[in-house]
């Protein structure tokens, strides 16, 4: 069976693809930004030594790590407004869900990075009179960040792919736009292939950079 590839209709809609790609990038970086803040707070709560904070942070993490992102999106868009009475903008629901989702994973990456640093480092910092804050910022974090970096980049790459799910609540990202173009041109093979290639074009440089960074970090250890 031969198929006549025809990119003409798709090409005419290239502005939709680019706009969709831009929206995907915005949701990726937006949710990474908020996710870092959420992850940082959650990580601080887990390491605070206060049982209540620790348990609350843990509950949040497990809730978001153990349900599929798609389920979370549907819940925040369709169920959550009923719970609080009112409605929620689909873009707000999308950004909120993506941020909470990635924040739960970031928190775990931050936490495991920090606790992986040998306790002797904390003791050595304490022994020269450093406050817990000085010890954290000058001794523990610089070492922990290095260990966190590969998993952090990995999680962020996954996050970019995850944004494609926001199309189910009608946020006009790349996946949504591909469906729109397909609807107009009846060219699913071309529309969805272009979409896939655009995702690859975005992420391939990132994964390569991550590998390179990891190798470099290993050398300096």
């Amino acid at each position: 069976m031969t198929y006549n590839w025809d990119f003409h209709g798709v090409w005419q809609n290239s502005d939709l693809f680019l706009w969709g790609l831009w929206i995907s990038v915005v949701y990726t970086f937006g949710s990474i930004f908020f996710g870092i803040i959420i992850g940082f707070i959650t990580c601080a709560a887990r390491l605070s030594g206060w049982r209540v904070l620790d348990i609350a942070a843990r509950c949040y993490q497990e809730l978001f790590r153990c349900t599929p992102l798609l389920v979370q999106l549907l819940w925040f868009y369709y169920a959550f407004p009923l719970l609080v009475g009112g409605s929620i903008d689909n873009r707000v629901a999308a950004m909120l869900t993506l941020s909470l989702y990635v924040g739960a994973f970031y928190a775990e990456i931050f936490r495991s990075g920090i606790v992986s640093i040998d306790n002797g480092q904390r003791e050595a910092a304490a022994a020269i009179g450093m406050s817990p804050m000085q010890s954290m910022t000058r001794i523990i974090l610089p070492q922990a960040l290095k260990r966190m970096l590969p998993s952090f980049i990995n999680q962020s790459v996954i996050q970019f792919k995850n944004t494609s799910l926001v199309s189910v609540i009608s946020v006009a990202d790349l996946a949504y736009m591909a469906a729109v173009v397909n609807g107009q041109t009846y060219r699913p093979l071309e529309s969805y292939t272009i979409m896939a290639l655009l995702y690859i074009a975005m992420l391939l440089p990132l994964t390569q950079a991550a590998d390179w960074i990891e190798k470099r970090l290993r050398v300096s250890d």
Partner: peptide
């Protein structure tokens, strides 16, 4: 601790 120094069995130098 500012006035009482300590040296450890496993050195605990800051590797970075």
């Amino acid at each position: 601790r500012r006035q009482v120094g300590m040296v450890f069995q496993h050195f605990n130098l800051f590797p970075h």
